[in-house]
């Protein structure tokens, strides 16, 4: 449908499954998943740092895999399961836990959250790592986080946070497999 005088056509309604909820949004085709999450769904926990896939601050989990949401078209995410930082704690509680997800708690306890801006993405990358490998070796931790830039910490306290969980092992690591993220 075209409305005279408007520059862009009004798009087809888009259905996005985010944190277990289905949202219907109406956005032009060129909107990215990050833009829809932040500016349409109010899920501002996913951050924008570099505009174009260089920093990882906008990392979300797409079908359980870390994805840079500023380089995913919103429409491409249709039919897939999106998990953002806002979904972690509710997910943990729904699974019978209390408080926040253990990964979030570990980042908090280790001092890994300085300015916090990169940490939604960082936590999700760490969460995905621990979901597939509850006891990662230090070099595996470094490799898994190598697409998330942090400017505050020098990464040391972030490694501490993941090591805390890795030492604790499967008992406190996310109990779900990546597949199970597809709610």
């Amino acid at each position: 449908m075209l409305v005279r005088g408007l520059r862009r056509k009004i798009g087809v309604i888009l259905q996005l499954q985010v944190n277990g909820d289905v949202h219907e949004v109406d956005v032009p085709d060129h909107w990215t998943l990050l833009e829809v999450l932040r500016y349409r769904l109010g899920l501002t926990g996913s951050k924008q740092g570099c505009d174009k896939g260089d920093c990882g601050a906008c990392t979300v989990l797409l079908d359980g895999q870390p994805a840079i949401s500023c380089l995913v078209l919103a429409r491409e995410a249709e039919g897939r399961s999106v998990l953002t930082i806002e979904g972690l704690a509710p997910r943990h509680v729904a699974a019978g836990g209390c408080g926040v997800d253990p990964v979030q708690a570990a980042f908090d306890a280790s001092g890994a959250l300085q300015c916090g801006f990169c940490q939604s993405g960082m936590i999700l990358s760490a969460w995905a790592l621990l979901a597939r490998n509850p006891r990662p070796r230090p070099e595996e931790v470094r490799a898994a986080l190598a697409g998330n830039l942090c400017r505050c910490t020098g990464y040391t306290q972030i490694f501490d946070a993941v090591a805390r969980l890795a030492t604790a092992g499967a008992a406190t690591a996310p109990e779900t497999s990546p597949e199970a993220v597809r709610d």
Binding site: P66, L71, A146
Partner: peptide
């Protein structure tokens, strides 16, 4: 190639 997320995508 690139970093972990971009290799997924």
């Amino acid at each position: 190639v690139a970093g972990p997320q971009l290799r997924q995508r």
